[in-house]
Design a protein around this nucleic acid. Sequence first.
RNA 1: GCCGGCGUAGCUCAGUCGGUAGAGCGUCGCACCUGUAAUGCGAAUGUCAUCAGUUCAAUUCUGAUCGCCGGCUCCA
Length: 599
Amino acid sequence: MSNQNGDSLRPLRHSAAHIMAQAVLEVFPDAKLGIGPAIDDGFYYDFELPRPLTPDDLPMIESHMRASIAGKNEFVHGELSIEQARAKFKEQPYKLELVEAIARGELGTHGESESHPSETVSIYSHNGFTDLCAGPHVEETSDVPADAFKLMSIAGAYWRGDEKRPQLTRIYGTAWQSKKELDDYLWRLEEARKRDHRKLGKELQLFILPEEVGQGLPVWLPKGAQIRKLIEDYIYQNQVERGYQHVYSPHIGKKQLWITSGHWELYGDKMYAPMDIDGVEHLVKPMNCPMHMMVYKSQLRSYKDLPLRIAEIATVYRREQSGELTGLLRVRMITQDDAHIFVRPDQIHQEFINVIDQTLEQFRVFGFNDFQVTLSVRDPQHKEKYLGNDEQWQSAEQAIKRALDERDLSYIVEEGEAAFYGPKADFMIRDALGRKWQCTTIQVDFQLPQRFNLEYIDADGAAKQPVVLHRAPLGSMERFFAILIEHYAGAFPLWLAPVQAKIIPIADRHYEYAREVEKNLRAAGMRVELDERPERMNAKIRDAQLMKIPYMLVVGDKEAAGNAVAVRLRTGEDLKAMPLEQFIAMARRLVNAKSMELK
RNA sequence: GCCGGCGUAGCUCAGUCGGUAGAGCGUCGCACCUGUAAUGCGAAUGUCAUCAGUUCAAUUCUGAUCGCCGGCUCCA
């Protein structure tokens, strides 16, 4: 979770990490130290320990930390030559590795982002403990308030993020200026957990992930499926208005399709094992690209046909690592709002703008205004890793940059993060717990047109190669739905609410009128349910409230007499009785406007 | 996949220092007929994740398996 204090809290968190490292060394004198940076909401430190750590060990480490804090020891900054550092950290193999990396210029030496070979390393010492550290730190240990830090969890983390290196024990902690800030932070975490899509998905009966079906394979329950259908209908309509043509394609196909596309070689390990069908290997489709290439090739294309926009809300299957699966955010069945746009090189820029506009429009409709854009470009040092010539890359990267600039989007450029087939722009959204997830991707592709021999006949009569734009504005239905649930905390706007209104008769004698109301609202296109359980009105209101249903329509003697409904909003507001026709008109207006409001 | 934690009724959870388990909600039945967040009474409900081992006896101890949760880029 980011916050404005992030930077000012860095020294405090850095120091807390150091105090923790010393505490761990007091408990485990043989521990080997990895790294211990300050992070968004706290700090961590990686250790190689003689035995596995359990959460029960944390209070003991915390109490060592408190003792250290009470000692009021100064943090002293120093510099060592590489030689001195090698001697100083000779018992600490991980630190030594970092010293060598700094000497070679693979790591920044003083916190700067660029790195270059260095003659010296920066160190900090307190109370006889010296650590390799760029800093900054607080003045003394007691500047870390003893009641404003907490060790949160233990995790495994590969040394320098590399699966092939040893796995160290990571201890996560959080640290703040005051106990109140810590309590606020813990409270925010608690609130975030309340809107976790996995919890709400269960409570609101939106989806399940049955063990019997398999990991990462969701089953959408009626209410969740209703919402998804509404999202898909919106996407479909929006795309038709923007000149897209929708297609359907098979869920399996010959393996050769993905060999041709190059995906098999790169992502073969993430695909489900090929199946033999009459002696020919087939794959469950891991991406749609080849299918849409077939659509393009189904006839000879003219330059006048471009851009040709081929869309499909299509499900693909990918074998994501089991440990990476998270609710609906990371699944093995992925339904993309996919499309491939075939353009002439001179159309890349305009079409990129079109897709950006489409993405922003769609996000806005769903109530999102806060995301982070990254532009992934080629690593200029290793141009050989990418397909396509300099001119193509430069013009494509420039086209994307100009498009982002023209739409006033700030973005981070990530060199070397481009796909091998072309540059891309990604949009990230945060979930309730502050984790960032990629939704949108817009990619330029020079490779597929070549691999599939795509052509169009240009104005001069010559056959030329189109460029393909891959794009998925919302990303996947699964991930987007998860983020949507958390964004609204389950209280969906009227146009998306699976049940828009609950009809609540007060007594048995009102059932007949209640059924009439139900019939009229259904006829008016509303999604309504009638609560006919033998419960009291109060209980029915409570249950509708817990299901976050936008409207509760109470009907009793008065309403039956006046062909009315008493409208209660899920916000608790009472709109009092109004004629049924008036309620329908209000709801219809709000749905058509895709409004977030309920009145 | 790897490290750590967890796995008890549909849901949320308690419990058994080894003697085959309980609450609330939900479900079902009966009564109540109610005006804006839980009416009362009664009933049913579990291979205590799975499989093996130790034991007279395992839901409890041990091991394996499956699943879930947190973590595995963020500048020593």
